[in-house]
């Protein structure tokens, strides 16, 4: 075993970690923004409900890898897509750049989704996928909110809007936390498939090491260790968050004497 190879190339692995982490974080952020309206639309029903349900079924019903292939290799087959800005932003946006913004070069074109770039394809696919899964998690949590909790709020004279904003959503989102923690970890692990569309994430770097030095395991083991460390950091972070926000579900925890619904519920 030649693990010193992975250590020698630590900066390549560091860039792989950055690729995995920043892309996962962005996808969760965008996915979360998609998930909230989707969850409410599914609960409300009607045309928007059907659309949201269809979207969730589509993205939960197909493997992430297939979705990525469809976006990366599929959309690029159509000439009409390749003729729009969304294939490659026009030259004047690509050349409108601010140099040395904290050591980075930022161009106007960087903010326009470009299907030509593997990074954007991964971002779009993973965000839509995460949006569907998180949407389903939130829908379940919203639906399972105890009726009494909402009736109590109404009885206190809160309007429907206030009930939703101050009781329904905070209560449901808290109860969704453990499942959401799982989704975050799944998304981080799932992002490993971005290496098949040329992005050098943690796995991509591991494969690069394998191909460069012909070592069967070292690159992959180094990748696995990095994923393991990040996963446990995430698990730990979610434990802290859950301890804070699900305090009211654990009567032994300090602060439980504040009441069943915690501090901010009422």
């Amino acid at each position: 075993m030649r693990f010193e190879l992975a250590l020698q190339h630590w900066e390549v692995f560091a860039s792989g970690v950055w690729m995995t982490l920043h892309l996962t974080a962005l996808c969760l952020l965008i996915g979360g923004c998609i998930a909230i309206p989707v969850a409410f639309a599914m609960l409300r029903g009607g045309v928007s409900g059907w659309l949201a349900t269809g979207y969730v079924y589509l993205f939960r019903g197909t493997p992430l890898l297939v979705q990525l292939y469809l976006v990366y290799y599929g959309l690029s087959q159509f000439d009409f897509i390749r003729e729009t800005w969304f294939w490659r932003p026009p030259a004047y946006l690509r050349s409108a750049c601010i140099e040395d913004l904290m050591g980075w070069k930022v161009c106007a074109a960087d903010f326009i989704p470009s299907l030509r770039s593997a990074w954007w394809c991964a971002l779009i696919t993973f965000s839509l996928n995460s949006g569907a899964y998180v949407g389903e998690i939130l829908r379940g949590a919203l639906k399972n909110t105890p009726k009494g909790e909402l009736e109590a709020a109404t009885a206190l004279g809160l309007t429907d809007k206030q009930v939703r904003r101050r009781i329904h959503i905070p209560s449901a989102f808290r109860r969704a936390l453990p499942q959401y923690g799982n989704e975050v970890i799944f998304m981080m692990h799932g992002s490993a498939i971005m290496s098949v569309i040329t992005l050098q994430d943690i796995l991509g770097v591991g494969r690069w090491l394998r191909a460069k030095y012909y070592v069967p395991y070292e690159g992959i083991v180094a990748s696995a260790i990095l994923y393991l460390v990040i996963t446990y950091l995430l698990v730990f972070a979610f434990q802290l968050i859950e301890r804070r926000y699900l305090r009211h579900l654990n009567i032994k925890a300090p602060g439980a004497e504040r009441g069943w619904f915690g501090r901010s519920a009422v």
Binding site: S76, R82, T198, Q200
Partner: peptide, 17 residues
């Protein structure tokens, strides 16, 4: 850009990437 197979290289030549 690094690809797993040569066929994928051809696909991205065609797409213009």
């Amino acid at each position: 850009q690094l690809y797993g197979t040569q066929d994928e290289v051809y696909l991205d030549l065609q797409s213009g990437r």
